[in-house]
Amino acid sequence: MNKETTSSKVTKWVLISISFIFIALMLLLPLITVIIEAFKQGWDVYKQAVVDDYTVHAVLLTVEATVFAVIINTVFGLSAAWSLTKFNFKGKKILTTLIDLPVTVSPIIAGLIFLLTFGRQSPLFPILQDLDIKIVFAVPGIVLATIFVTFPFISRELIPVLESRGNDEEEAAALMGAGGFTIFRKVTFPHIKWAFLYGVVLCTARAMGEFGAVSVLSGHLRGKTNTLPLHVEILFNEFQYVPAFAVASILVVMAIIILILRSVIEYTGMRKSNVR
């Protein structure tokens, strides 16, 4: 028995060590590399790269695309979650599959289908040209691609929570004469608040970092259609390593903030739902 426990202790620490080494090499080291490379030539060079006009513009475009994605996916997520969990109708399964589809598609293919929809060879192209709307190789394309790749992120968090709660409370409220928005605000939303925030955080993370889909649709015009990740790519391919890593460090900081928010939401949300 004694031998057994020592051997299991050995196993325990061997496994923990393997995990630590793996995490340190695969996850921690890349993060540290970005910071080291960014500051290789000192603070002044770093600052110059970060406050560069093109970088600032890229930050603003990334924020714009992210905000759009979060807003549209919030409206969609809340509507879809309500429609899919409160009512029974035909075609529900197909609808769920279609909502999940965007995350299973390669980002490059996501970009491709928007190119086919709004690009030069599309039947819609003459109409868009008459209306003077540019989508491909312009900001609207980037926004659309970002919405596409983050499409199910909010609804996917809400639907399981609403499904597991059932509809009794909402039905009671409706029978007592409450209107739809009142029911949503007073009865439903308090229960899905944490799941909703969680979805928003995941959506933000993916939206600010999207590369492939946006890359297809952007046309890479500096100062016009360049998001932060695309700006990193251009700098890196021009062998401007220090500026590339300096810009990347902005994204690293954002990623760390996202990770912290995620675990805070998970932790508080879990505690709250346990108390209830």
Partner: peptide, 11 residues
């Protein structure tokens, strides 16, 4: 999931 893929790539 949180780190943009391009950043992971160059790092």
């Amino acid at each position: 999931f949180a780190l943009p893929t391009a950043v992971a790539g160059i790092a």
